[in-house]
Design a protein around this nucleic acid. Structure first.
Lengths: 320, 320
DNA sequence: GCTTAATATACTCAAAATTAGCATAAGTTC
DNA sequence: GAACTTATGCTAATTTTGAGTATATTAAGC
């Protein structure tokens, strides 16, 4: 095996916390003009025993934050994922991580900011119904992109992909296909990064706020993974305070999943799975009848094969 | 950001194919004495546009095989994952991939061999009931390992982990926790790699056949991922011939999942989900009533949100 | 040609889970 | 006290699952 030089391994993190009903991510200033980026740092093959250890060290250094839960997401190595590579920089390969933090665990220093993750992927938030952006901008421009294909076969492939990921026709919206949607918008030149990465000017309106390098792609990967994971592992409790009401838990699940849930069924499922146990205390800040406070029941992980919050999606209905 | 040298990126692949009722993986000779290894090659930051492209190029070079389906699994970077690192080698970071091939698509050259993957993780195959190895070797030695913990708290943690992953007590066997089981056995010194990686002699019997470096860990990751994936993506058809009987499909699912399925319910689920369509032809090589031949129905991916083979596990029952 | 064995496939029936509510309880605001 | 919130209990219709039984169609042995 010949040794290859000119590679640099970066470790980047999507650090998620919940602030009221918004899932937020930690961002830092970036070298890219006019864009923020994810916190990241170099992997040190001499000092770091594992990749994850390097990530934790780097995040402490860059953001002054000590991480709790962290899991590896994906390794991003496409050429020119960092536009700087064009001007002769080394080939950066980035190992992306998803990390969860409780809001207020550490106060971020002024250089960092927690930002609603739907600012970058606004089409992913269906809590208030279909996002207007989809009907007004995304669908028309995707249709144009489909029609612009050179061959009939390619046209059909584009249509299938568009319908599948954006739930046109009779397909249903799959909240886990976050990355597929971002990649489609990237190919169809609907996000600012497509033009930027090719060094071309942007045509038309871009959707969502761009991030540095390929960080929006990493965010999309993280969102998809987290949405999948809350269904079979109790990771949502890493984001909750030690005690919470069932409605708070529901709002958290809705914030991550990007859709509304059926309240009575949600509480039935949560209770039935034994995910939580009552603390005996009562919350009075509800604005209505006081609610019982619950805590995560650690024992579930030993009882159920795949403990997570089930998501009884609400379709037509009126009750809240 | 300071540039760090002394890192080498490797791309390794778990290439799975089905041979009769055995899932097999492609292995190549390894520098490690007495062990085979996964095919791998270096990532070339100059020539390879993407990591996956590098993988495909490397696999063609090393194994003469052209890959169909491939997905990234995980990036392995623990120190001393390659024992050679101790003697001053560079720090190897390996991006692991899962790839699927149809048996017979390419004839392997004599240096490679397709080998039953349960040879390396024999405790994962429950098709013939609980593997004898678990009761005879694994459970007794894991119990000794639990008892050997220094503190009561650590003892309890080890017991919980053992019960959860190996389904002792009232826990149920979760066929996706392949990696967790391997890592437990590694920590408990039940696999040859634990001693080898510490440069110590092996105490007692080792379970399963070892592989080079951390390749058994990569295999465990691949097996867990594939077992999860067949349930929500139609990847199993990448391993099947173009036309097959429902029993052949069931045997394939059982081989991957490592357990028996309920025949009547399996066919009901497969038919109900619209995963397959009849070809109109009949297979005569059944040894009984001839079976209808089916093919994968590509349309499903556009209709169902998560099309995959459901696995109606068989518990007590007698009917085959 | 008949029995036995294998496999394929159709159909059933009870239990469990899900969906989509209604109804009532217990507070706050004006 | 009326109107409005939110919490929580309960239910009826439907769908899905689990675990079969029953029957069909072939091959092999005698």
């Amino acid at each position: 095996m010949r040794s290859v030089s000119g590679v640099v391994i970066e470790l980047s993190a999507v650090i998620v916390a919940l602030s009221d009903d918004a899932p937020t991510i930690l961002l830092v200033p970036s070298e890219d003009v006019g864009a923020q980026g994810l916190p990241f740092g170099p992997f040190d093959p001499v000092g770091d025993r594992t990749l994850e250890e390097g990530l934790r060290r780097g995040v402490v250094q860059q953001a002054g934050l000590t991480l709790g839960y962290a899991e590896q997401l994906y390794t991003f190595g496409d050429r020119f994922r960092d536009p700087q590579e064009r001007s002769g920089g080394p080939r950066p390969v980035s190992v992306g991580y998803l990390a969860l933090a409780r809001q207020g665990d550490d106060a971020p220093s002024p250089r960092e900011s927690w930002t609603d993750w739907y600012r970058f992927l606004p089409w992913e938030d269906w809590r208030g119904g279909t996002p207007g952006l989809i009907d007004s901008v995304i669908v028309p421009r995707l249709e144009a992109w489909c029609a612009a294909a050179t061959s009939k076969a390619e046209q059909q492939r584009r249509r299938d992909r568009t319908h599948l990921t954006f739930a046109l026709g009779d397909a249903t919206w799959d909240n886990e296909r976050v990355l597929e949607r971002y990649e489609l918008l990237y190919e169809a030149q609907l996000v600012a990064e497509s033009a930027r990465d090719q060094g071309k000017p942007l045509l038309g309106v871009a959707t969502g706020t761009p991030l540095a390098k390929d960080h929006r792609r990493i965010l999309a990967t993280a969102m998809g993974r987290l949405r999948a994971k809350i269904k079979y592992r109790p990771v949502i409790f890493e984001l909750m305070p030690p005690a919470f009401t069932l409605l708070q838990l529901q709002r958290a699940a809705e914030a991550l999943a990007g859709g509304r849930l059926h309240k009575q069924n949600f509480r039935r499922l949560v209770a039935h799975e034994g995910l939580v146990e009552p603390t005996g205390q009562i919350s009075v800040q509800t604005g209505g009848r006081p609610a019982e406070l619950f805590r995560f029941r650690r024992g579930v992980v030993l009882e159920r094969p795949a403990p997570g919050v089930r998501l009884p999606v609400k379709r037509g209905g009126k009750s809240s």
